[in-house]
Amino acid sequence: MFARHEQATAWLSVWTDLGRAPRTIDAYGRGLAEYLLMCEREGIDPVAANRAHIAVYVRELTSRPHRRGGNVISIDSGSGLANATIQQRLVPVRLFYDFLMEEGLRESNPVGRGRYTPGRRAGGQQRGLVPRLTKLPWIPGEQEWLHILEVARQEPIRNRVMLALAYDAALRREELCSLRTDDLDPAHRTLRVRAETTKNRLERVVPYSASTGVLMSAYLAHRATISRARGPLFLSESRRNYAQPLSLWTWSKVVRRIAVTADVPRFSTHTTRHLCLTDLARMGWELHMIASFAGHRHTDSTLQYIHLSGRDLADKLARGMEHIHAWRIQALTSPNAASAEVSR
């Protein structure tokens, strides 16, 4: 595909030379390849494509059946890729046209992006090509969490300590699987999340609990029976990859098995991170502290992860209403209080 499109090959080479992660390069390549295939089917020159041609691609994405079954792009559509998936497909196309503009092959980007424009209504925010839907992260309820813990107790020591760390330190999947033995500081119960393993290349040091420390000690003793070499913390114990670093996909399969067994299908490798950050908010941590703990560059990202449960909101509402109710009762039963309030 890219052999037939010189500019696309050059664009992808630039990103590779800039040191982007292999998975990012792969995602960009696959996303742009889909767009180029559409251009070939429709007889469109991708270099000269306009906004109408991009609209054809968007229409195709919104009507394409999802490979995992029916998904919705709007409440009543019943088909098409999810909104987040469509946004991901458009990112490499937008970046490709940015590259063509920099090379002097185009004067404008047909994809465009949402941007702030002074003087516009609704806070000056101009809508992007496809409206972005922002959904609150899902976290399990108390009963669902108990089911997950019940299943997790039957897992090998490695999987249990990984789940504990994933929650304790709010780790992303890649951060967890990339931990090395020298990232641990058992004396202070902290671990270092190296910049090269994070999403935004921000290194941080985070603590873990005493109970997780007990699990960690047991796992390190177990790990020594597999390999005494320093290096990746979590090792595979399968016959095919014995003593090799545990892959992201293997960990995803472990979590998926736990989710299915516990009958909590929405539980994923990212759920523990959501739950930890939400629990920190419930405990009264300030927003910037949670952002630092999570490794977010901006607090706007933190707000997307943190949401209080309906019960928490109900408690806040009840306390507020109790105060209002008390004032109204006092005003009704004390004429002097009511007249004083009116005279203000």
Rank of each mutant, 00 (worst) to 15 (best):
G114E: 06
R94Q: 11
A152P: 13
K199V: 04
M162D: 05
L176R: 04
S108C: 01
A195Y: 10
R160S: 07
A170G: 11
I157M: 14
P118C: 03
F96L: 08
E107Y: 02
R89E: 00
L171Y: 11
P92T: 03
F96Q: 04
R115V: 13
F96N: 01
L191M: 07
T190P: 00
V193C: 03
A164H: 11
R189F: 00
P186W: 01
I148V: 15
P92E: 00
C177Q: 10
K135L: 07
W145V: 07
H188P: 00
R172C: 02
R121N: 04
Q125H: 08
L202V: 11
V151M: 09
K199D: 01
A122T: 08
L165N: 06
A166E: 01
Y167C: 10
K199H: 01
R153T: 14
A169S: 15
R192Y: 01
G123P: 09
D98I: 14
I157W: 12
D98R: 15
L202D: 03
T198P: 09
P137R: 01
L90K: 05
L149I: 14
A166R: 10
L95G: 01
A122R: 14
P110S: 06
Q126L: 14
E144M: 12
Y116L: 14
P110C: 03
V193G: 00
R158W: 11
G104D: 01
C177K: 07
K135S: 03
L133Q: 11
Q126D: 10
L133H: 05
R153K: 15
A152S: 15
F99Y: 15
Q126W: 12
R106Y: 01
E142F: 11
R132W: 04
L179M: 13
E142T: 15
R160E: 04
G141T: 15
R180N: 06
W145N: 06
P92I: 03
G141S: 14
R120C: 09
N200G: 09
I157G: 08
L184Y: 02
W138V: 11
D185G: 00
W138A: 06
V161Y: 05
G104F: 04
D183G: 10
R121K: 13
E102F: 10
W138G: 06
P110T: 09
Q154H: 14
G123W: 05
E155N: 09
R160W: 11
L191D: 00
R94G: 05
G123E: 01
L184V: 05
V111K: 08
D98L: 13
R94M: 13
V111E: 02
L179K: 12
R201S: 04
R89L: 00
G112F: 04
A170W: 06
P156Y: 06
G124Y: 07
Q143Y: 13
Y116F: 15
S178F: 07
A170I: 10
E102R: 15
G114N: 08
P140K: 06
G114H: 07
